[in-house]
Design a protein around this nucleic acid. Sequence first.
RNA 1: CCCCUCGUAGUUCAAUGGAUCAGAACUGCGGACUUCUAAGCCGCUAAUGUAGGUUCGAUUCCUACCGAGGGGACCA
Length: 559
Amino acid sequence: MDPVSSIRERLAQALAGAGSSVVPEDIVLEHTADLSHGDYASNVALVYAKQLGKNPRELAEQLAAAVRDAEGVASVEVAGPGFINFTLSPEYLYEMLEIGRKHGEKWGSGVGLKGKKVIVEYTDPNPFKEFHIGHLVTNAIGESISRLFAFSGATVKRANYQGDVGRHVARAIWGLLQSGESAKDVKALGRAYAAGAAADVDGSPVKEEITAINKKVYERSDKAITKLYDEGRKTSLAHFEELYDILGTKFDYYFFESETGPFGKQVVEKHVADGVFKESEGAIVYDGEKKGLHTRVFLNSEGLPTYEAKELGLSKMKYDTFKYDTSVIVTGNEINEYFKVLLAAMSEVFPELAAKTRHVSHGMMRLQEGKMSSRTGNVVTGESLIEDLADVAKARAAESRARDKEKLAQDIAVAAIKFQILKGAMGKDIVFNREQALSIEGDSGPYLQYTHARCHAIMEKAKEAKVKGKFDAGAPPSDLTRLVYRFYETVVRAQEQLEPHIVANYLIMIASAFNSWYAKEQILDGTPAAAHKVAVADITRLTLKNGLWLLGIPAPEKV
RNA sequence: CCCCUCGUAGUUCAAUGGAUCAGAACUGCGGACUUCUAAGCCGCUAAUGUAGGUUCGAUUCCUACCGAGGGGACCA
């Protein structure tokens, strides 16, 4: 039995003896904030003291006495107002870490979600428009959440949902017709969209031209427009693939609005008769007021499906493709209110699917100069940001030990961007500070990569010196080893809360502890103690490697 | 006017209701090392929007106010 279960069980028994009944799972046992307080701490004495009419410290002492023989625990102490602190035995700690070293890339993974099928939808860029840094945010988060699920044993499918029809497409085509540029050129597409969007304003004759183009796109009635559409779509999608490759994402399924639209419309129409949706002012709406939300249009007065109808259809299309147990959808938080209405409608139309759906929304990435907009051209594209960062990294990469310096510069760029996105809790806006993003020092992705490479270098040197790593139970556990031990439990928490930043911050703690240790400790010192230190470096290396993988950040062996 | 988020050092972020230190990083100043990667290490200064409430204990939960962002039927 593991220490956590063992401690909980004994505490529950002891509490029962004292006159309070609790199930072991409800006992709070957490990692200590301060390692001087031990490895785990429980507040049960504080919680139940009043109910039992006892002094908290007194109760704590009484409970502590009953759990001293818990599995893997070396000492139990009462501290502060009545906390019970547990310190793991070196034998247990090192045994776990030794197992971890053997598990290699599996270190930190679990089987808690074995057999579960999860589909994660994210990124969702629109063909004919720029892939901007907002898409980078969704991509980084979605990819990390996918990996957290996979690491917990689930079967994960990645889905991308792209808007290949709609007014934005017509705008871009209008722009192409004006400029005469090729639809096979990604940059020309971006310019064409910006031109079309700028011209598409009330009162302008262009507005009607674009509406007409939009109609022709749907109907495929105009040969020239259809050709531009097909070429442009293909160009955009191919371009996105290049970016996914750099970002380390491989999608299993692609869904398009051209498919979800018609299907979503069917679904909505089918549920007008049973009263889920109703006609109002020429449109088909869902009355969200009855659930404390607001009413939203699902089919507009021209009979065209809105985002809500499409997303409704999409939920079923996904399920028909992959019988998921959980469907995670990652989007920006500006659609939070719509999504609540959508989920309310879904709970009536597809109740079993609504129950499996989890919406994860992230804050907007904003520039310090103001809101980004692809309409005005005030947009930072994903690729330009990666390129800028890679340029900065190149100078460093030039003097590195890596063989492929171009690749290294790119890996560093991806790490810098992704870490900036993933280090904060979800939901809050991410202020995009160019200078800070370009910085590769401090709490950053490159810092983690650097530390990982350092660990790797030690392992290579150890191999040359023929020193094999082995933990020595006689060596008092350092802060570093005690933190590394928490990896698995940290991953579980991040997965349950769908919060990659828990892993990101944990890794910074690990890297920081390692670097402090590294600075004052000679690892390959030629003494018998070297074996233990090599083992510590090795498990640190694996923790950083697997942790970076969870964040979707490349972990080169040499930087 | 209503609904939803969110207000933590100068800046960007932490803190599953906890522990007389609310942690980092960046910036600034100052150090150490003829040692395995100095993108590193060590030190100093600095913060919970305001007012109440619940609790043994509040950055965290509740109420009001102030401030920022998003939404409030045919774009997402």
